[in-house]
């Protein structure tokens, strides 16, 4: 039993998962401004960004996967699980790389890249599911919305971590 998770860390990660689920639920209550599939704020990404910046990447990934599974269980259908899982994994990979390359500076850039690649991943999934190239007409819209919403969530993560971190300084 060498690699037991410390209780404090487990509690914090569970808390972050609950937090991102709550954000996800609150966001899905907002009616969509633009009636296109795939365009939304993606506020739950704030939690992933904070964890990626201030904790080990493994923890951030666990929280992301737990959030995606739980949100599909609570709010969505099976199909939306596939979309958010592929989009989430792609955006996590690119955010991990950019976070490393930028030495944890400029979180809004990491957020913008994450938003962009999340939407591109969803677009690819949509292409595979509908198997029609017509969905690629959405690419410009999804690119713009991904970058803009990603910038916004990145800034949110920046401000949130400024107020959150002093309270969880024992984390990591």
């Amino acid at each position: 039993m060498e690699n037991r998770i410390p209780l404090r860390k487990l509690t914090l990660l569970a808390l972050f998962t609950a937090l991102s689920l709550a954000i996800y639920a609150a966001e899905s209550a907002i009616p969509p401004l633009i009636p296109l599939p795939g365009i939304k704020l993606g506020l739950a990404n704030i939690i992933t960004l904070i964890l990626l910046r201030h904790g080990p990447a493994k923890d951030a990934f666990f929280v992301l996967v737990a959030r995606i599974l739980l949100s599909a269980l609570l709010f969505g259908q099976v199909l939306s699980l596939l979309y958010s899982f592929i989009g989430g994994c792609l955006s996590f990979c690119i955010m991990y790389i950019s976070n490393r390359l930028l030495y944890k500076k400029f979180p809004f850039l990491t957020g913008a890249l994450g938003g962009l690649f999340h939407n591109l991943g969803q677009l690819l999934t949509a292409f595979v599911i509908t198997s029609s190239a017509g969905v690629f007409a959405y690419t410009p819209y999804l690119v713009i919305s991904g970058i803009l919403t990603g910038l916004f969530t990145g800034l949110c993560a920046c401000f949130a971590s400024r107020y959150l971190l002093p309270h969880i300084s024992h984390f990591s």
């Binding site: 296109l36 599939p37 259908q77 199909l79 979309y83 949509a126 599911i129 509908t130 198997s131 029609s132 017509g134 969905v135 007409a137 959405y138 819209y141």
Partner: peptide, 13 residues
């Protein structure tokens, strides 16, 4: 912009 219904995998172009 085509109409896409992802859950029903329908595309109108």
């Amino acid at each position: 912009l085509p109409i896409v219904c992802l859950p029903n995998r329908l595309v109108i172009r």
